[in-house]
């Protein structure tokens, strides 16, 4: 055992070349550790992505239909944001290794800013789903001959008196029965309802704003994970990935603060970098699988 190993402040990390400890393998133990962690992460993401592929294969039309409502532009922008943050992270590692404080701090700050940007765009996307609802409500006096039950799908705000202001499309519920296609609130999509209304009308129909009295609402469902199996997959995959981004922001912040204090942790910066590039790599697969196909 080397003498240094007996000291109180022994940090194995910094003593990797000691052949007694590393058995002569040239790879730093910390790097082996982070790669083992990434190996377990690969299995984790393969498992949930594999489930997604199976569920998509089992309900192909449902997935294809509902994926249309996702915002390709927001997700595409987010792809570029993450790729750019990978660039700045790689440059931060390089700067840390060369002990260039200003450059390292600048690159770490840019990486962290991209992480915030990514989560901001993600929040915008989630919010768009949060206020998107399918509503079944009647219009006119309940039970009277003039009362009609409508299916609405669109984006909702609430008026001060609790009424729903919905921008989207609507079709009378009975038209579903007339067309013999059944009705399931979990399956209805905005695009589907639009094409249904247009097929019924025989011409293109624009989305409109409807005011729905709160007391007239029969049932309503938000585009959350409970909407259908597609949204369950969408929120699980992007949510788990988002948690990984949030998790990466913690060591990035620590490295940035230490960098501002003039401290360098080149090895640790490299390990955080490896994790960060992995998070980018996962998104590279999520983006086409969820948004593009």
């Amino acid at each position: 055992m080397s003498e240094s190993a007996l000291q109180d402040n022994y940090v194995p990390e910094q003593h990797a070349p000691d052949p007694m400890i590393s058995h002569g393998d040239p790879t730093a133990p910390g790097k082996v550790g982070i790669w083992l962690f990434l190996a377990s992460e690969i299995m984790f993401f393969v498992a949930i992505l594999g489930s997604y592929v199976i569920l998509r294969g089992g309900s192909h039309d449902l997935f294809a239909e509902h994926a249309k409502a996702l915002n390709k532009w927001a997700a595409g922008t987010n792809t570029l944001v993450l790729i750019f943050s990978s660039l700045t992270m790689a440059l931060a590692v390089d700067a840390a290794q060369k002990r260039q404080q200003r450059r390292m701090v600048k690159c770490l700050a840019l990486t962290l800013a991209c992480a915030f940007g990514f989560m901001g765009i993600k929040a915008y996307e989630y919010h768009a789903k949060w206020v998107h609802e399918t509503v079944v409500a009647h219009e006119g006096d309940a039970g009277s001959a003039s009362s009609t039950v409508y299916v609405y799908d669109g984006h909702v705000h609430h008026a001060p008196n609790g009424d729903l202001l919905l921008t989207g499309y609507r079709a009378p519920l009975e038209q579903f029965a007339d067309a013999k296609i059944g009705f399931d609130i979990h399956l209805v999509s905005e695009h589907g309802l639009e094409t249904f209304v247009e097929a019924q009308a025989g011409h293109p129909v624009k989305e409109q704003e409807y005011t729905i009295k709160a007391s007239n609402v029969g049932t309503q469902i938000q585009y959350g994970p409970w909407k259908n199996i597609f949204y369950a997959c969408y929120f699980t995959l992007t949510g788990v990935h988002g948690i990984h981004v949030l998790g990466g922001m913690i060591p990035l912040t620590i490295l940035l603060v230490q960098g501002l204090r003039g401290k360098f942790f080149p090895a640790h910066t490299e390990y955080v970098g490896l994790y960060w590039h992995f998070v980018d790599l996962v998104w590279i697969f999520l983006f086409p699988l969820l948004y593009l196909i």
């Binding site: 089992g58 039309d61 399956l187």
Partner: peptide, 30 residues
Amino acid sequence: LTIALIPDIALGRGTDFNDMVGWFEKLHHG
């Protein structure tokens, strides 16, 4: 893992939504 899961799709034992094949097509054409 991916190969092991394939029979699930191939045998059509996906989800209950398999019953809904054609649902959206009908919806689109009204």
